[in-house]
């Protein structure tokens, strides 16, 4: 099966998301630790913050490289994970319904997340993030086009 990567714009979305999360954690840590004073704490905070920023800069492209998807006559396969790798294969007959969702950041970069719902008990929702929004819509339509059976 031919697999392809998603839209690289998702890297920026992820960077922003992680940066915001990191910023909040950093604020909380500063607020709780700084009053205890000591230059040791301050320097530890700065080192942690800087390494966090480095990680936020480097991790999304790595994750992006390992996020691939492929569509064939049977259905869709999604590969993800850098250290713990997972391929999930979903026949299109099993798709119950779908969502294409966009957060504010994703709207800014024009990407969307395709969510596929199954009747399963563990993977009831399978996500494919980072598709360009028109591609997500097109993929959804392609997947739903031929599924007519009941799905259980």
């Amino acid at each position: 099966m031919q697999t392809s990567t998603t839209d690289p714009a998702i890297i920026s979305v992820w960077r922003w998301q992680w940066l915001i999360a990191l910023f909040i954690v950093f604020l909380v840590a500063t607020a709780t630790l700084l009053p205890r004073s000591g230059s040791l704490w301050a320097s530890a905070l700065i080192v942690l913050g800087l390494s966090g920023v480095l990680l936020v800069w480097l991790w999304p492209p790595t994750y992006y490289r390992h996020l691939r998807y492929g569509v064939d006559a049977t259905g869709i396969v999604i590969e993800r994970g850098v250290l713990w790798r997972s391929h999930i294969a979903l026949p299109r007959a099993r798709i119950q319904h779908t969502d294409v969702s966009q957060g504010p950041l994703q709207r800014r970069y024009g990407v969307g997340t395709l969510k596929l719902y199954t009747a399963g008990s563990r993977h009831t929702m399978i996500e494919l993030p980072g598709l360009a929004h028109p591609d997500a819509i097109a993929l959804r339509d392609a997947l739903l086009a031929e599924s007519t059976t009941s799905g259980v």
Binding site: A89, L90, A119, I126
Partner: peptide, 9 residues
Amino acid sequence: LQSVQLTAS
């Protein structure tokens, strides 16, 4: 079968 997963740590 609903979905099939292949994982590797």
